[in-house]
């Protein structure tokens, strides 16, 4: 049994220790937010927050999580970033969006007043294929209190 804390709740799951967090979140805990995109740490659609830092859950063996705090989009409780994404209608297919929200949330927690350059560089680890980039950028600016649409 592996113990881990997700969104403030302790869980014991029957998973092999090499299992990436992504599959534990999805298959053992029934959480949908973190998505399988590449399994290679290249696209960011599995991004969650661990101890305040954005991490790629597809490459995070569950055995390294002892004593650490995992947050997923299910645990954000409707934060400013989520509201801003809704306001800006910042999704097309939306598959990448939970990862974007998590990475943006981590950015704004560490840097509440990011520059446009900061936002773009920070989000560049996450891929969007529908081309929703401008709305996602606008949403992050809006969540940072910098107004939305450019």
């Amino acid at each position: 049994m592996i113990r881990l804390t997700v969104n403030g709740q302790q869980h014991e799951v029957d998973a092999e220790p090499d299992t990436p967090l992504l599959y534990v979140l999805r298959d053992d805990l029934g959480l949908n937010g973190a998505k399988f995109g590449c399994g290679l740490g290249q696209c960011g659609s599995c991004t969650v927050i661990v101890d305040g830092q954005p991490v790629l859950s597809c490459l995070m063996p569950v055995s390294v999580l002892s004593g650490r705090q995992v947050r997923t989009i299910e645990g954000l409780g409707g934060n400013a970033v989520q509201h801003a994404f809704a306001e800006e209608q910042a999704a097309q297919c939306g598959y990448c969006i939970a990862g974007m929200v998590m990475r943006a949330t981590a950015l704004l927690e560490q840097n509440p007043h990011p520059s446009e350059h900061d936002i773009r560089e920070h989000l560049s680890l996450n891929l969007c294929r529908c081309g929703t980039h401008m709305r996602i950028l606008a949403a992050v600016r809006r969540a940072a209190g910098q107004g939305g649409k450019s």
Binding site: P17, D18, P20, L40, C58, L59, M60, P61, S63, V64
Partner: peptide
């Protein structure tokens, strides 16, 4: 090694696509 298998194996494992 579970950390290697879960974190690195997807690319550096003997059976990984890369």
């Amino acid at each position: 090694n579970p950390v290697f298998a879960g974190a690195c194996g997807g690319c550096h494992g003997v059976d990984a696509p890369m």
